[in-house]
Structure formats: C-alpha cells, structure tokens
Design a binder for these strands. Structure first.
Lengths: 111, 111
DNA sequence: AAGATATATAGATGATTGTATATATATTGT
DNA sequence: ACAATATATATACAATCATCTATATATCTT
C-alpha cells in the first residue's frame, strides 16, 4: 500500500459521520444503493455523496453502477491492508531492534 | 474502548505530520524527549507540542516527566485496541448474519 | 419527448485545524 | 537570585473540511 492511499484511508476514517456511513454499508451484508444510505442520516444527499466519494477514493468502498442506481459495497480487505500497514509502521520493536537502536544513542543519555 | 477515544485516535492518526511524529516515537525503541522529536521536523516547537498533546490525549503516546524533560513512549497496545475495534465495527458478515440481513430485504432485489 | 428519479458537481459558508509567534511556567546550573 | 533551558499555553491566521443549496447529468417511465 502506497503512502498516498494510506493517508487517504486514515483521513476517510477520521470523520465520525463518514465512519458511520462506512459502518452502515459494511453492516448491510449485500450491496446498498446511495439512496438507502442517505435515508440513514440526517444530512443532505450531496453531503452523503461527498462522503461516499472520499470512501471510494480511499478504496474502502467499491461501487457498481446499474442504470440510474449505484450500488455500494464495503471492502474489509482494503481495511485489513490499512491495518496491517498501520501496525507495521507503529510496531513494538523486537529485542534485537532495540539493541540496534540503543547502540548509537549514547549521546542523548550522556547529555 | 469507548466511542470518544476511538474517534480521538482516528483523528490523531489522520494528520500526516502527526502520524510521522508517532512513527518517530515508536521507532525510537526507548523513551524520547520532546526536544528530540522537535529536531526531527521542520516545524515550530509549539506545533510539535500541540501534536504531542493530541497523541497523548488519544492514548497513543504516554509521557513520563523527569525534571524539566518529558519523556515520550508509544503505546502499540492502545493502537492494537483501536485496530481491534475498527475491525469489529467494519467486519465482513458471516453467512448467518448475511442471511438475517437479507431476510427483510426483498424490496431492493425485487425493485 | 417529457417528466420523474438517482446521483454527482459547483459554489458558498461556518467550523475545525495545522501552524506560527509570543509568552508563561517549571526546572537546572551558576 | 538569575540566566538558561525545556515544555506548555495563548492568540492569530490561513487552509481544510463538513455541510448546505442549487444545478447538472444520467436513467427510467409513460
């Protein structure tokens, strides 16, 4: 996963309403059309459309167009990729890594 | 993990600079003082201080005061809690859950 | 063709936020 | 006591963003 998508996902997850929208789509079980999502929230259709765009840009939601409708489906696999990358970047160090880190670190403890 | 902390963490992870700060602390291996973090980034000390506050408020970083210094340490366990909650909320449904969802959903497939 | 419906886009606005400068507070060393 | 250092806080500002209204585009129905 490249850094751009990584940050895009982090951003997408950061807004409470947008996260709720993702939750609704994920809990739907099967596809859900935009209108059904709009009905779940007390915000304008354009607002939901905007959030859906950010979620799909992040890859957390995929869409399938069918006639005038657009069907949404969550991508838990993409979320899993994000999670994996997140834990790879913020990882507790192994004893060996700690040793290497500490090896060139006398300055801060001597100063 | 309560909803407030969950959103606080999501927010804290969403800013690229703040995330880099967390990365630096996590990769330090042992404690790191604020000044060392400030040296890593081309932003003002007050800006780093502000980001550190958000990271500690979110629980992703813990601090230990020692004299005029404040030592920082990442909390990968808190991140792990966040990740667990994230995947619990956005989870692929089991076949049984899908069945239940679909049970009262004939309209969308019939329309 | 015309109206109705679904979704997307454009533009505006108020709120939030990342960052800066300046200052306060606390601690250490002389 | 005083200067120096480390960190936090107050205030300000520009940029971003969530939201809205209005409109555009596409599709369906009659």
């Amino acid at each position: 996963m490249d850094a751009i998508q990584f940050q895009r996902i982090a951003k997408a997850l950061a807004d409470p309403r947008r996260f709720e929208i993702l939750e609704v789509i994920a809990s739907a079980g099967n596809e859900m059309c935009c209108g059904a999502v709009v009905e779940c929230f007390p915000v304008a259709q354009a607002t939901v459309s905007h959030h859906l765009k950010e979620l799909t840009d992040a890859g957390l939601v995929e869409t399938r167009a069918e006639g005038q409708f657009k069907y949404l489906r969550a991508r838990p696999d993409v979320l899993a990729e994000y999670v994996a990358e997140l834990q790879r970047r913020i990882a507790p160090l192994s004893a060996k890594e700690r040793g290497l880190k500490n090896a060139h670190r006398q300055k801060s403890s001597a100063a």
